[in-house]
Simulated scan of single mutants.
Amino acid sequence: MKLNRMLIAGVIALVCVFNPLFAKGTKDAESAKSANPVIETEKPDILRMSVLNGPSGIGMVPLFENAPDFDGVPSSFEVSASPQVLLPKLLKGEVDAGILPINVAAKVYTANKQAVVLAAITGNGMLSVISRDTSVKSLADLKGKKLTVAGQGGTPDYMIRYLARSEGIELNTEGGIEIDFSIPTPEIVPALLSGKIDYALVPEPFSTVAAIKDKSVVRVLDVQKLYEKACGIDGCEYPVMALVVRKAFAEKYPVTVDLFLQACKKSVEAVNADPKTAGALVEKHTLGLKAPIVAASVPRSAFVWQTASESRQNVERLLSVFAEFAPESIGGKLPDDGFYLK
């Protein structure tokens, strides 16, 4: 049990814890850029990025190992303990880019005079219901049972509400599903392993930790599949991790930002191609997770690279779910067109 807690203690819960579109518009924009290349009259002294401790930084870890130079502009990468630590750095200009939960990114944009813009989605949904009860095949099979949920006020919270409603299932009523937020996220897996609880809705890498420690614990429900069914659209995904850039920085240094985003894309691709190496780097650069857990969880973690325009429809769809249940969680309204980096 002590080992379980040590493995899990380093994991920061996702508090928030998604189909390309505008393809023609993207191609047209790329053609326009080729025809009219942007030339920066000056360059920044450095490009600084911060990621959150835990899963959000995994996709960027190759950049921690080899910080790129963007046509003469050096870069630096650091880890922040939480969004509450990262946000002031972004707003003060102490860092130029960061990864935030998508609803937090939207709220910052709306509440802080469009201080940041969404550059890309680096991670899609990775929620699962885990249990030893393999008779659970659908959400309806959880009726009359208690489901412990990680992250009240974040994506897991509003996602389970949305999915239950889409299937006509009552929550916290007799004969419905009882939702429990009483256990802190890092303690959910130990509670499941000890038999204190029987069903849990958790993000990666928690489900991987549970499966590694006890082979009888399995992912009985894949929330991505449930969400796609509820959307009624093939390929409907929900974004979790948003790469944002300070708007002023993006407007002043578009060439540097473009080179930076190309490097981020390659970084995510490298992680997906070689989870073992990524795990070693995550542990080396103290991103809060052990190498074996990262290596095992990456294939299930939905690390992606989707530009702002490619992901916009999925972003707006998920933010609409947040807006329905808790408008304040996204700043009171959906962000406007300026939120999406062109």
Score class of each variant (00 low, 15 high):
residue 4 N to F: 13
residue 6 M to R: 13
residue 6 M to D: 14
residue 15 V to Y: 12
residue 16 C to S: 14
residue 23 A to F: 13
residue 25 G to Y: 11
residue 26 T to Q: 15
residue 27 K to I: 13
residue 28 D to S: 11
residue 30 E to C: 12
residue 41 T to H: 13
residue 41 T to L: 14
residue 42 E to C: 11
residue 43 K to V: 09
residue 46 I to C: 06
residue 47 L to P: 00
residue 54 G to N: 10
residue 55 P to M: 14
residue 61 V to S: 08
residue 61 V to W: 05
residue 65 E to S: 07
residue 66 N to S: 11
residue 66 N to D: 09
residue 69 D to C: 12
residue 72 G to I: 02
residue 75 S to G: 02
residue 77 F to V: 00
residue 79 V to K: 05
residue 80 S to V: 11
residue 82 S to W: 10
residue 83 P to R: 02
residue 83 P to E: 02
residue 86 L to P: 02
residue 87 L to F: 08
residue 90 L to G: 01
residue 90 L to T: 03
residue 93 G to C: 08
residue 94 E to R: 15
residue 95 V to K: 10
residue 98 G to K: 07
residue 99 I to T: 11
residue 100 L to K: 03
residue 103 N to I: 07
residue 106 A to P: 03
residue 106 A to K: 09
residue 107 K to R: 14
residue 116 V to N: 11
residue 118 L to E: 09
residue 119 A to W: 00
residue 130 I to A: 01
residue 130 I to W: 00
residue 131 S to H: 04
residue 140 A to L: 15
residue 140 A to N: 15
residue 141 D to C: 03
residue 147 L to E: 00
residue 149 V to G: 01
residue 155 T to Q: 13
residue 159 M to Y: 04
residue 159 M to S: 08
residue 161 R to I: 09
residue 167 E to M: 13
residue 173 T to C: 04
residue 173 T to W: 07
residue 175 G to H: 04
residue 182 S to A: 08
residue 184 P to M: 09
residue 184 P to E: 08
residue 185 T to Q: 06
residue 186 P to I: 05
residue 188 I to N: 03
residue 188 I to L: 00
residue 196 K to R: 13
residue 197 I to S: 02
residue 200 A to F: 00
residue 205 P to W: 06
residue 214 D to F: 04
residue 214 D to H: 03
residue 221 L to T: 08
residue 226 L to P: 04
residue 227 Y to P: 06
residue 228 E to S: 06
residue 229 K to F: 06
residue 235 G to R: 06
residue 240 V to N: 09
residue 240 V to A: 08
residue 241 M to S: 12
residue 246 R to W: 03
residue 247 K to Q: 11
residue 255 V to E: 00
residue 255 V to D: 01
residue 260 F to K: 00
residue 264 C to F: 07
residue 267 S to F: 06
residue 272 N to W: 00
residue 272 N to S: 01
residue 273 A to Q: 11
residue 281 L to Q: 05
residue 287 L to R: 07
residue 288 G to R: 02
residue 291 A to C: 03
residue 291 A to F: 05
residue 291 A to P: 05
residue 292 P to C: 06
residue 293 I to V: 12
residue 293 I to A: 05
residue 294 V to S: 02
residue 298 V to F: 05
residue 299 P to L: 09
residue 300 R to V: 12
residue 303 F to S: 09
residue 311 S to F: 00
residue 313 Q to N: 11
residue 316 E to T: 08
residue 318 L to I: 08
residue 321 V to P: 09
residue 325 F to N: 14
residue 331 G to E: 06
residue 336 D to I: 11
